[in-house]
Nucleic acid binder design. Structure first.
Lengths: 155, 155
DNA sequence: GGTCGATTGTTATGTAATGTAATTAATACG
DNA sequence: CGTATTAATTACATTACATAACAATCGACC
C-alpha cells in the first residue's frame, strides 16, 4: 500500500531536496521574464540592500566563492543593472551599486517573487509559514554547525 | 542594524536554498564513508523498497531523467550494491535489486542518516518536525502545481 | 506474419551551480 | 624597502541535472 518512495520520504534531506527543486523551478520561471534567476536575483537584492558592498563581502553574505561571483556580476553589469566602481580607498576592490534600471527591475521582480512566495505557501496559516521559516533557519544552523565540527576535526 | 541579507531572507526560496545546501553538505559527509552521496543513497533506498523495479520506473519515482540514472546505476552495480537483470517478460528492461552487500551497507547507511536527521532537527519538538515535513510536502506540491500550469499554458 | 509506432536503456552532449589553484595588482606592515 | 596578504580574476574540474538521437525490442494492427 505504501508509495514506492515511502522509506525515502522519511529522510528530511530528501524532502528538502524535492521541495527546494520545486520552488526553485517556480521562482526561476517567475524571474525568467526579467532576465533573472534565483542566483542573480539574490545578488541584486543584496547589492540593493547594501550599496557600495565589495565583491568579497557579497560572496561572504551569499556563502559562495569569489570566483563564482565574477561571471554573475559580468552578467548583471552587462545588462546595466549593477555597476562596479573602483573603491577610492582600496584600488583593488570594486564597490557595487544597483543602477536606476536595476532598481526599476528590482521593484518589479520583488513583487513577482512575493506573489510566488504566496503561491508556494498556499494552504498554510501565517503561523505555519513563520514556523517553516524558523525551522529552515534552524536546519541551516544545525547543518553549518556540523560542518564546522567536521572542519575542525579534519583541518 | 539589519543583517546584510535581511531582505533576501524574507524570500522563502532563498531560505530553502540555504537550508538545503547545509543539510546536503552534512548528509553527503555522513554518507561519504559508505561511498555514497544523497543521490546514490536515494537510489539505493528506492530499489531496496521496490525489488524488481525497472529503470524507467525508478527515474519516475525520483523525478530524474532516465539517462542520468545510467551512470548512477553503473556506479552502484560496479560497487556490487545493486544488480541489473533482464526482465523475462520484456527483454528491453532491467529489473533492479539490491545485493546482499548492498543490503548490509544500506542498513548501516540508514542508521547514519537517521542520526544525521536527528542532528539536523536538534532544538525542534516532534510536532515542529512533523509540521516541517508537512510544510515541505505542501511547498513541493504547490511548486509542482505551478509547473504543471506553466507547461499547459506553454505546451 | 510483417510493418510501424512506442518504449527501454543507452550514448553523446549541453548547461547551471558550485569548488580549487594559480595569477595579477594593490595594500599593509615590520 | 620588501615581503606577506588581500581583491579580483582566470582557468579548470565536478556534480546534478536536461535534451536529442539511436539500437533493440515490444505491441498492435492489417
Amino acid at each position: 500500500m505504501s508509495a514506492p518512495d515511502h522509506t525515502l520520504r522519511g529522510f528530511l534531506g530528501y524532502g528538502m531536496k524535492r521541495a527546494f527543486s520545486a520552488i526553485k523551478a517556480d521562482v526561476d520561471a517567475v524571474l525568467a521574464p526579467f532576465g533573472l534567476r534565483l542566483l542573480t536575483f539574490s545578488v541584486l537584492v543584496v547589492i540593493r540592500d547594501n550599496p557600495g558592498l565589495r565583491q568579497t563581502q557579497l560572496a561572504e553574505v551569499l556563502m559562495i566563492e569569489r570566483p563564482n561571483l565574477v561571471l554573475i556580476l559580468d552578467e548583471l553589469e552587462g545588462a546595466d543593472l549593477v555597476t562596479r566602481s573602483r573603491a577610492r580607498d582600496d584600488r583593488r576592490a570594486f564597490e557595487l551599486k544597483v543602477t536606476l534600471k536595476g532598481r526599476r527591475l528590482f521593484d518589479k521582480a520583488v513583487q513577482a517573487v512575493e506573489e510566488h512566495d504566496r503561491r508556494m505557501t498556499m494552504g498554510m496559516t501565517d503561523e505555519a509559514i513563520a514556523a517553516l521559516r524558523d525551522a529552515l533557519l534552524l536546519v541551516e544552523t544545525n547543518g553549518r554547525t556540523a560542518d564546522e565540527r567536521r572542519k575542525i576535526s579534519h583541518p
